[in-house]
Write a protein that binds this DNA or RNA. Structure first.
Lengths: 338, 338
DNA sequence: ATGAAAGCGCTAACAT
DNA sequence: ATGTTAGCGCTTTCAT
C-alpha cells in the first residue's frame, strides 16, 4: 500500500506515447537526436501522467555522484548557518542535491555523522567543522573527497580563516589599550583547533605578559557564562577577556553583568565571529570577522571543482580575518585593580 | 577516471568470501538466516575491502523511500536553525537521510526548492515555511507527503504555533500597559501568513483602538530597520511597536536608537520568536516564544509516523506560544505625545 | 543456511 | 531518429 505516492516512470511515459524509454530519457535530458514532434508528445504525456525524473536512480545509473554532503558542527551557531548559506550560494540552483548532517552534540565523536554521508553516496563532503583527529580525517579523505572548512588539513582541500592572525589582532588590540591581565577563554581542545589559543599565548609572551587561559567545556553561550564566572571570581581578575567565539563572549558578558560589572569600563571583551548579534546597539561587541558566508561560498566552489577534477592538487584557501572594533573594549581603569 | 573513489560492492565482498550476494545483503541488514560463521567471514572481508553499504541503491531496490526532505525558508534566521535542530533530534541517529533545501531568497517562488526535493525522491518533505499558495500546497501534497511547519494547511500534516493567541497576547500586553498608538510591523504577505496581523488588528479593535499596520519588504533586520524608520518619522508616531518576528524587532530597535530614542521609555517593542538574542542583557526584548525547537521535533515525529502510515489522518499539532516579558516594554510616558 | 533470478528507475553504449 | 541491451548496487521472492 506504499504506492499511494508512487509516481510514473519513464517506462510509463514511453508506453503512453508509444516510443522507447530511451527517447524519454533523451528528451528529458535535452540530449540531441529526438525530433521536435516526439519531444512534444513525450512532454505532454509526462505532464498528463505526472511524471518526475528520479534523480537518485539517474545518479546510480550514471557512474558519477553529484550530491554534496554538508556536515555542520552546530547549526544553532550563526557561523555554521552562514557557512551553509554560503555553500548554497555557490551550488547551482537545481544541480547538486545537498545532503545535510548536523552533529548532535559536541561529543567529539562525529563518527556517525560523516559515516551516513558516505553511505548516502555523496560525491563530496564539505565539513565544517571537523573535530576528528588529523589521522582520521586523512582516512576519511581516502574514502570520499573532503573539503575541510574552518580548519586546514594537509593534503586535503581546505578553506579557512587565518586564525593566528585573528587571535593576534584581538590580543594586540587589548594590549595596545593598556591591558596586562588579559585572559583567553578557549573552547574544548581538538586536533587543529588550538591555533587561536596558541597565537594568543604567543602574542602575550611577545609583549612580556603572562597568558591566562581557561577552557570552556563547550562552545556555547552557557558554557561561556559558566567559565567566565570562574575567571571573574579570581582575586586578581583579568581586566580583559578574549574568547574563542561570539557565543562564548556573549556568555562572558552575561557573567560580567551578573556580577554587576559594566562594560567596557570594568571589563573589556573581544569575541570571534562577528556575528550579527555583536553589532547590535547595546551589545557592541568587538569581534574578529572570519567571513563565514565567504568561507562557505568558497568551499562550495572548491567542491564543485573537485567534483569535476578529482585529481587536481588540494586547494588551500586562507582568508584574512578582520578585527572589528566596537564598544566592548576600552583602556583599563586605574582602580580596577581588585 | 572517476573510479578513484569507487568503493567495493556487495558483489566484491561475496566474491571474496565465496558466497552469494544475498548472504552479504542479509548479513548487513541483520536479517535472520545467516550462520554466525559466514556472518563473521563477511564482515571481515567487508572490512578488508573497505565496503560501505550504498544507502541510495538500497532505497531504490526497496520500494519505500526513507529520506526526509527538509525545506527551510531562511537558514540565517534562528527560528529555522532551531527547527532544523529539532527535526534532527527526532530522526533516528543513522536512519533517515536529511536532504536539505534552503530558499535562496524570499522571492515567493519556492518552486525549484521543493521540486528538487521531489526529484531526489524523498519519502516526505518537512517544509518550514511554505510560502506557496494553499492551492499549490495541496498539489504538492498529492505528489509527496508533506509536513507543513509553522503554517496550518487543511488536510495536510501541520505543526504550528497558535499565532492568533501569540499576537493577541503581545498586543494585549501593550494595551494593558496603557499604550494606544500601537503599530504592527508585518512581513510581506503570503497565503497562510496573515494570522498575526489579523489577530493584532482584531485585538486593537476589540479594545476600541485603531490598528496601524506597516509591511516590511522582507523578514530581516535590515527590512525592519527601514520600515520602522518610516513608522517613527510619523508626526503622531506610535509609542509601541509589535513586530512579526525578532529580526524585524531588532531592526526597529536600531531605527529607534538611530533617532536617539531610548527603550522602553520612549518606545515599547515586542518581537516574536524569543530568539536567544532577545534574552541578552542590554537587548531584553519582550517577545513571543513559539517554541521553534519543539516545533521541529514534533514535525520530525509526525514525518516518521506518516512514513510508516501513509494513510492515517492528517496531523494537526498546534502549540501554544508564550509571551516572555522583558525590559523592552513599559507604560508610555505622558510627554511622549510628541 | 544458502543461492538464483527478477526488478527498482534510470543511463549509455551499440545497433538499426 | 529510434530501439535494444546491458548494467548501476541493492533487495526480495522463491527455490534448494
Amino acid at each position: 500500500m506504499d504506492n499511494r505516492h508512487r509516481s510514473a516512470t519513464q517506462s510509463d511515459v514511453a508506453k503512453e506515447v508509444g516510443v522507447s524509454r530511451t527517447l524519454v530519457s533523451f528528451a528529458f535530458r535535452g540530449a540531441p537526436g529526438v525530433s521536435e514532434e516526439t519531444k512534444q508528445a513525450i512532454f505532454d504525456a509526462a505532464k498528463r501522467l505526472g511524471y518526475r525524473p528520479n534523480a537518485v536512480a539517474a545518479d546510480l545509473a550514471r557512474k558519477h555522484r553529484s550530491a554534496v554532503g554538508l556536515h555542520l558542527l552546530d547549526i544553532r551557531n550563526e557561523v555554521y548557518a552562514d557557512i551553509l548559506s554560503g555553500v548554497r550560494m555557490a551550488l547551482p540552483q537545481d544541480g547538486n542535491r545537498l545532503i545535510l548532517s548536523v552533529s548532535r552534540s559536541v561529543d567529539g565523536e562525529d563518527h556517525g555523522a560523516l559515516e551516513s554521508l558516505i553511505e548516502a553516496r555523496v560525491g563530496i563532503i564539505i565539513a565544517a567543522t571537523l573535530l576528528d583527529s588529523d589521522e582520521r580525517v586523512h582516512e576519511l579523505a581516502k574514502i570520499v573527497p573532503l573539503v575541510s572548512v574552518t580548519r586546514p588539513v594537509d593534503g586535503v582541500d581546505s578553506v579557512y580563516s587565518d586564525d593566528a592572525a585573528g587571535a593576534r589582532a584581538a590580543t594586540e588590540h587589548l594590549i595596545r589599550l593598556g591591558h596586562t591581565r588579559i585572559a583567553h577563554l578557549a573552547g574544548p581542545v581538538y586536533d587543529g583547533h588550538t591555533v587561536r589559543r596558541q597565537s594568543y599565548a604567543q602574542t602575550m609572551r611577545d609583549a612580556g605578559l603572562k597568558p591566562l587561559l581557561l577552557e570552556a567545556d563547550d562552545f556555547t553561550q552557557d558554557a561561556g557564562q559558566r567559565a567566565a564566572a570562574k575567571l571573574l571570581a579570581m582575586t586578581d581578575r583579568p581586566t580583559a577577556i578574549f574568547t574563542h567565539n561570539d557565543p562564548l563572549a556573549l556568555g562572558a558578558r552575561e557573567a560580567a553583568y551578573a556580577l554587576g560589572l559594566s562594560l567596557p569600563s570594568e571589563l573589556s571583551l573581544v569575541g570571534y565571529d562577528n556575528s550579527r548579534t555583536s553589532g547590535l546597539h547595546g551589545i557592541d561587541l568587538t569581534s574578529v570577522d572570519l567571513h563565514a558566508v565567504e568561507l562557505g561560498r568558497i568551499a562550495g566552489t572548491v567542491a564543485l571543482e573537485r567534483l569535476s577534477n578529482p585529481d587536481g592538487p588540494a586547494a588551500d584557501k586562507r582568508l584574512t580575518p578582520q578585527l572589528v572594533v566596537r564598544n566592548s573594549t576600552a583602556p583599563p581603569v586605574g582602580n580596577s585593580q581588585m
